[in-house]
Design a protein around this nucleic acid. Structure first.
Length: 521
RNA sequence: CGUGGGGUGGAGCAGUGGUAGCUCAUCAGGCUCAUAACCUGAAGGUCGUUGGUUCGAAUCCAACCCCCGCAACCA
């Protein structure tokens, strides 16, 4: 079956940190790797979001051209994903011609169908700077408590009043402190209320959604959907495909969502729609702040554009990662970039630790000390040591030759276990799968003791024990592909299935695949 | 009543109606094939508080307490 697996597009104005990886990219990769093992036809994609004021402002700060600035960060993302074995079929960006064409096509179609309409509205404008002022560029005093330092679009720290341009006192331009005026401007609006009924029905039926996804979407919809402006007075971004709007661009959140379609097309050409139509499923991984874009706005765009396109089959969101007990923050220099974590711990140690602790249900506190402890006690001492003691024993006592026997009890245990894991993955319980694999390794270690192979040196026993090693190579592959592949090489086999079948044959000289991390405290 | 999440043995977590679980740490045994690794057993929890629903509540409901995020870079 065809499945489209995507991860939300990262904003090309900063580098990936461990939170990005744990919150979205790693769980998506593990999921898609497993599905590929099962033989599903997976298209796994993402790409950098190249536009938006965040990119523009950051680029201006360092006096760079916004496009080359974004491209620089795009390449950094691409590079770190490759280094972390996030196995995208395509990682592109939203600055391509294909993307622009698709956005224009969708924009015009929605416009023609009156799902996008023009509205005149008044926006704060600074005559001194000769520019429209986005929300937070207008400062003033709170209308309720007179607190002199509030910004439009935020809540007052003191009394929690939400500040609007309509109610702020003594407004001034943040840049030059002149008083802004209201100036008429024409913008385009996406008429979300037209989709409200269908979206409500859609979300209601989606029992596969995690609790947060459902709750957040429902609470967003509860108060009724409102039209949202999808254009901005800016020079950087995707142009509006109508005459007379050369000084405006399409707002980034509208166009970035379309990236999923255009990037599909970029890789698959004319066949891209096959991944977006029945019976294909589309699955979106992201952190929790992106939920409503995917559960409400993307479905609305799809409904308005082409009724044959499927709505998201699942939206898999994760909570946040804390670092050493505190929220990550660049300005406080409290952040761990993915590339630094990679250097410190190594790819598979990092992947394994994050996978075991994915913030699926609640925030997870990433601690370096805990990582070292966890890797040493589970991946090295439990799983790694089991693999090593078994392989070494086979190599030293049986010349690495595993003869075929039968052990129905163990073979059944392993097959049943595989079914369990498969159902965990299919239900997007990735963390549970990783935890279960550790229990599997526990069971294998117990088996080793019970069989007392060092006394009897029975070839049937090594056959039994090696079944667990082979099983581990398959089980670990989605989580730590490189190490699992190395293990498969020792076993002289290849990883290409999610099903367990009895294993025998000649193995290569083993070595320690999962060394401990030296603690240099 | 601003809002979302969370409060489970020393630490980190799982567990959404039916005898409280896992990993680490602690203690006592065992084993020696292995990365001083592995196995067995023990101790340790009034599941934030109070009240309610129920034959039965960590799990459902209500109220309250505490912690974290919700201004900016930022998933």
């Amino acid at each position: 079956m065809k499945k489209l697996v995507t991860v939300s597009l990262p904003y090309a104005n900063s580098e990936a940190h461990v939170g990005h990886i744990a919150g979205a990219y790693l769980p998506a990769d593990i999921y898609q790797r497993f599905q590929k093992l099962k033989g599903e036809d997976i298209l796994f994609l993402s790409g950098s979001d190249m536009h938006g004021s965040g990119v523009l402002i950051n680029a201006e700060n360092v006096s760079e051209d916004p496009h080359s600035f974004a491209l620089k960060y795009h390449n950094k993302f691409k590079n770190i994903f490759t280094k972390l074995d996030i196995g995208f079929d395509i990682y592109s960006n939203t600055a391509t011609e294909i993307h622009k064409k698709r956005v224009h096509d969708i924009f015009l179609k929605l416009y023609k169908n009156k799902y996008i309409i023009q509205k005149l509205e008044y926006q704060p404008f600074c005559e001194n700077e000769k520019r429209f002022l986005p929300d937070r560029y207008v400062e003033g005093a709170c209308p309720n408590c007179e607190n002199p330092k509030v910004k439009v679009g935020e809540s007052c720290d003191k009394c929690n009043t939400f500040i609007l341009f309509d109610n702020i006192k003594n407004p001034e331009c943040k840049i030059c402190h002149h008083k802004p005026i209201l100036k008429k401007t024409k913008n385009f609006f996406l008429e979300l209320p037209l989709f409200e009924k269908e979206i409500k029905k859609y979300i209601n039926k989606k029992n596969i959604f995690r609790k947060t996804v459902k709750d957040l979407s429902e609470s967003y919809i509860k108060t009724g959907l409102i039209s949202r402006s999808i254009t901005r007075d800016m020079s950087y971004g995707i142009s509006i495909p109508l005459e007379g709007f050369e000084d405006k661009v399409i707002y980034v959140w509208f166009e970035a969502l379309i990236g999923y379609l255009s990037i599909s097309e970029e890789l698959k050409g004319d066949k891209w729609e096959e991944y977006w139509k029945e019976p294909s499923q589309t699955i979106f991984f992201m952190a929790k702040d992106n939920i409503v874009f995917h559960s409400i706005i993307l479905p609305s765009i799809l409904l308005g554009y082409n009724k044959n396109l499927v709505l998201p089959y699942n939206i898999v969101s994760n909570e946040y990662l804390l670092l050493e007990g505190e929220k990550m923050s660049k300005s406080n220099n409290h952040s761990l970039l993915a590339k630094d974590a990679l250097k410190l711990f190594g790819k598979d140690n990092l992947r394994f630790y994050l996978a075991l602790n994915l913030p699926e249900g609640k925030d997870f506190n990433f601690q370096k000390k805990d990582l070292i402890k966890t890797i040493n006690s589970t991946l090295a001492s439990n799983i790694g040591n089991y693999i090593n003691r078994t392989l070494t024993f086979a190599y030293n006592n049986f010349d690495g030759v595993i003869e075929k026997y039968e052990s129905l009890e163990d073979e059944k245990y392993i097959s049943d276990f595989f079914k369990n894991i498969s159902s965990s993955y299919d239900n997007f319980k990735i963390k549970k799968a990783v935890n279960d694999i550790i229990s599997f390794s526990d069971h294998a270690n117990q088996k080793f003791d019970q069989l007392k192979i060092w006394e009897n040196k029975d070839p049937k026993n090594i056959y039994i024990l090696i079944q667990y090693v082979y099983a581990l190579s398959l089980l670990l592959y989605p989580i730590i592909p490189e190490s699992a592949t190395n293990l498969a090489k020792i076993l002289n086999t290849k990883i290409k299935t999610d099903k367990y079948k009895p294993f025998w044959g000649k193995i290569e000289k083993p070595y320690i695949i999962f060394p401990k991390i030296e603690n240099d405290d």
